[in-house]
Design a protein around this nucleic acid. Sequence first.
RNA 1: GUGGUCGUAGCUCAGCUGGUAGAGCACUCGGUUGUGGUCCGAGAUGUCGCGGGUUCGAGCCCCGUCGAUCACCCCA
Length: 421
Amino acid sequence: MAKFQPLQAPKGVSEYYPDRSEIFEYVRERLIGSAKSAGYQLIELPVFEDTELFKRGVGESTDVVSKEMYTFEDRGGRSITLRPEGTAGVMRSVIEHNLDRGQLPVKVWYSGAFFRAERPQAGRYRQFYQVGIEAIGLNDPEIDVEVIAVAQRAFNNLGLKNYSLEITSLGDKESRARYSKDLRQFISTLDLDDETARRADINPLRLFDDKRDEIKSAMSRAPILMDYLTDESASHFARVKELLSALGIAFTVNNRMVRGLDYYTGTAFEFVHHGLGAQSGIGGGGRYDGLMAELGGAELSGIGFGIGVDRCVLACEAEGISLPESAALDLFIVPISPASKGASVLLAERLREAGFRVDIAYGDRSLKGGMKAADKSKARLSLVLGDDEVSSDTAQIKNMKTGESRSVKISTLHQTLGENI
RNA sequence: GUGGUCGUAGCUCAGCUGGUAGAGCACUCGGUUGUGGUCCGAGAUGUCGCGGGUUCGAGCCCCGUCGAUCACCCCA
C-alpha cells in the first residue's frame, strides 16, 4: 500500500463536531439571542472583501492588517482578503446600501467565521467565530451602555460568572492628538530594545500591554490618556459609568487599556474571563466615530462589539457549565424484521411531516442493540416495529424515562403522539 | 513570527536500560421465546502523526517535517 500523508485540517482552525458541536450551537444561539432581544437585526456579509477595506478601515499600522491577514489575488486580479474582523464589512455594507438613510441608529448583528494568520494557541485560531453587533448613527452615552449591556447579558445567559468588564475612554481625535504627543515624548526618555522601540513607534499605547516587569514599572509613570480628555469626552464617559452603575453592571476602569484596531475612539471595553490562560478576552468593542467617513460614508458615529464564540465555549467548559437537558427526539423507532424496516421509514417520515422529531435504528441490529440506540438517542419515546405490529396496525409505545408502555394505533400515531404518553 | 513541552486504538492514557503493542471508557454480540439504562461474558479496532537515518532489530535513539499545547506577540 502506498504511503500517504494523512489529510488533516489546515493549521490552527477550530472545528466543532458531535458531541461538542452541541455546546457551540448553544453558545452561539444564546449570544445571538441577547442581540435580538434588544432589537438588533441580522446582517449577513461575505467572508472576503476587497483588501483595501481593511487597510483603510482597520488601519495599516495594526498587526492585524500588517501581518495577520489572509490576502490573495482572485482570478480577475483583484486583491481579496478573508475578513479578519466584522466592523469594517458592516460599515461598507451600510454605506453601499444606504442603510443609514432611514431611522438612526442602525442596529445589526452578525455571526460567522473570521480569519487571522496568527500562531495558533488554545483560544486563538486562524479561523474563529464571532457574534457581534453594531449600532450606527448615534453618539449618545445611552447607546454605549446598551451595547455593553447586550454583551453583559449574553455572557449571563450562558451562565458565565468568572469574568469581569473593563472600560475606558480613548477620547476623541483632539484628546488623542495631544496625548499621543506627550506619550511619545515620555517613551523617548526610556531605554528600549529595537523591537520594542519599533512597536512603540507604530502605536505608543502598545507599551501599556507589555508583560515584562521593567516595562510595566517604567510605564507606570507614563501620562494617562484619561487626563487628556476634552470636557465633552469626559462627560460622555462619566455618563456611561453612571448608567452602568445604575444598571448594576460591575466594571473597573482600566486607563491603560489598549485596543488593537485603529478605528476605536471614545468608549472602549473588554470582557476578560479568568479561567482561560493567555487568550482571556471573550469579548470587546468600542466606539468608532471616524470610521464611516474614513470609508467614504457620512460623518456618522458608531459603536459595537465582537464576542469570541470559541472562547465562550472554552469559558463555559472551564466553569463546568452543562447544557440544559432536553429530549433530542420525540420518538425512536426500532424495526426488528426486514419488512418493518421499510415500514419504519414510512412511519418516521409521516411523523416528521407532522412536526415530530423522529429517528430510526438503522442497520440490522438486534432488539437489544436497537433499544440501546433508542436510549442513547435521548428520545422521549420508543416503538418496536415487527411484522405483527405492521399487520395489526398496533404497537407498544414506551416512555423511556418511566419504562411504562401502552398500546397505540400506528396509522393514527401522528395524532396520539402529541398527547401525554 | 520567537522560544519551551508534547503527538501510541473513537476518547483518556500505560508501554521497564531499543526485541515488531496494552488498560479503562466507548463500540458490536450474547446471558434461552420481541424491549434500553445496572451486572456478567465474548468480540472487533492501531499506517505507534508523517518522512528519512542509526541498528541484526525502533513506539522507544538521531534528523527533518506536520500538528497540538504553553509563553512571548496579538486579540475574539
